[in-house]
Design a protein around this nucleic acid. Structure first.
Lengths: 314, 314
DNA sequence: ACAAATAGTTGACAAAAGCAACTATTTGTT
DNA sequence: AACAAATAGTTGCTTTTGTCAACTATTTGT
């Protein structure tokens, strides 16, 4: 945790240094940084009052008043008394002001262009997506919005999803349970078999997505004897404890009830205590167990079953 | 491209606003932002001259001189004439100065802690990794370092790699060539078959990594009759044109020569013109072709062969 | 050996930002 | 409806922040 904090502190320091923050005469324009920020903000809002501006930019209203006076003198903005409140004025950019703003943006763009000129497109894409990530997370941290609201679910597979699911299984089981590479090979095999005899009307995969990336999944595989197997249940460690696992499980079991399966079973190992607790909570009961040496570990492979009473459906 | 630039411009604006840049009385300390930046910089260097400080922080030397005077008055720093240059002074923090700096960092950390308090660990990890990405890319853009230097190669598979390779194939072929999901299933199958009869001494996979992430790969699969098949050749679109593909191909072919294969062949489709050009350039020649309807497209599947003359080895 | 450059200091000054008092209006309370 | 409290905006005054140029003491280059 402390490491994370100092990382952020370092980034802030780095970025302020990069931007060369305390720079006046912003980009050769006759205006200072604060003045330019005002210009941008007016441009963004189209029409705005001084009070709102000072709120948004955290500027002293006296100071702001002077900046606006300057802009009016230069023909950048025009003020007209607000209809709603005759103490206040609606401020908007004149054509000249719009031109000035466009010119500023052009200069800034030019600077950025030169700056990223040496980056390859893939690197540039990474830069931008990293910036968007920060923007989103930073505004989220202040919004204090719950994680659950930012996670979406999808019951469809898009190209790349299967590979990513295999990737997650291989990576997370290696990191968390010390499984060897052989486990990932096994996962490839299970997916291969699944895809070989995939029945779209019966088999189903649900994904939990955060910011477009898969952070959880679950699947139901049709088995002989009107049974269903629950597979590939996984939630990314950084996103656990927010009910994502529960949501996935509930979606999968709802599907099983709807399809009138008589029984849902799953195979797991004694290492997956967190998942097992959740299975038990949903009504699964252990029905078989066997010791195996697999994936570089000695494991107790367990089977859990949940009998579905379709009469509950009424 | 213009979209990328405006994204970056927006981020800069957003982040400066977030940091609340023009704030004096930094974090309730008796010092201003500029003064604190000086304090940080001295702390970081341990011992530094005023000239170097003004260079690093882009501060006027007169202004800096006054800041240092203030710090000396407050017992934050001590100056002693430099041994090397008697015009200059070595500046270091006193114990009191170190305490002051630590206190500042503590306050800043506290602020950050409160700030990220509402984030889940996975989100926080994303935030930090995004910040590191930006830091790295931004310093790289000014370093003007070539991409090639930032890409590493690895001839070993770690857990998660296979899944990620399948993911990349599924995603990129869908995006670039319009292949359907079925293609990814096919890739899963090819990997399944590969892993089933994997011969560590003969079969080989090479990965190109950028910032720890796979951006390219190639593999050699042992085939009957002393032949080798070249498979899964791929370079992430954002990283093409930097010689990564060529490097991968050369590594793979060097391996084939070393293992004294008589022939290397590969299967591709007419859509992959970019790869085909590279194959041809390395000496591959078309040997067979067949029209197929596959993966949602009508494709011309082509086979290319490269005969290896082991006498060249001498 | 001597001109040019460099590290640091200081005085004078301009720009940026904050504070408080003031006017004109609106809002809320009884 | 009357009136106190709050709000939008302006202005004068102040402090803080930062710039510029002149100056001293030393080092560097030729």
């Amino acid at each position: 945790m402390d490491g994370k904090i100092s990382q952020i502190r370092l980034f802030n320091r780095f970025y302020t240094a990069q931007l060369g923050i305390p720079s006046n005469r912003f980009l050769d324009s006759p205006y200072s940084l604060s003045e330019v920020r005002v210009l941008y903000e007016i441009g963004e809002h189209g029409c705005i009052t001084a009070h709102r501006l000072s709120e948004l930019l955290q500027l002293d209203k006296g100071y702001l008043s002077r900046i606006l006076k300057l802009y009016r003198r230069d023909g950048i903005i025009e003020k007209k008394p607000s209809d709603a409140d005759r103490r206040a004025y609606d401020i908007r950019l004149t054509d000249r002001g719009k031109a000035q703003l466009a010119e500023l943006q052009r200069k800034q763009d030019e600077q950025i262009r030169r700056f990223i000129g040496s980056l390859r497109s893939g690197e540039c894409d990474r830069l931008i997506s990293a910036m968007q990530t920060i923007k989103r997370l930073v505004s989220m941290a202040s919004d204090n919005k719950a994680l659950g609201d930012r996670v979406t679910y999808r019951a469809e597979l898009y190209p790349g999803d299967i590979g990513y699911l295999i990737h997650l299984h291989g990576k997370l089981y290696a990191e968390e349970s010390g499984y060897s590479q052989a486990f990932e090979c096994y996962v490839v095999k299970t997916f291969y078999e699944f895809l070989e005899r995939y029945k779209p009307d019966k088999d189903k995969v649900w994904l939990a997505l955060y910011d477009g990336e898969i952070v959880g999944c679950i699947a139901i595989v049709d088995r002989p004897g009107n049974e269903a197997q629950l597979r590939w249940f996984l939630v990314h460690p950084g996103f656990r404890g927010a009910g994502i696992g529960r949501n996935l499980l509930e979606m999968a079991l709802a599907h099983c009830r709807e399809r009138r399966y008589t029984c849902v079973y799953l195979l797991t190992t004694d290492i997956q205590q967190r998942a097992i607790a959740m299975y038990k909570c949903m009504g699964f009961r252990p029905t078989a167990a066997v010791e195996v040496v697999q994936w570089g570990k000695v494991l107790r492979e367990e089977r859990y079953d949940l009998l579905l009473d379709s009469s509950e459906e009424r």
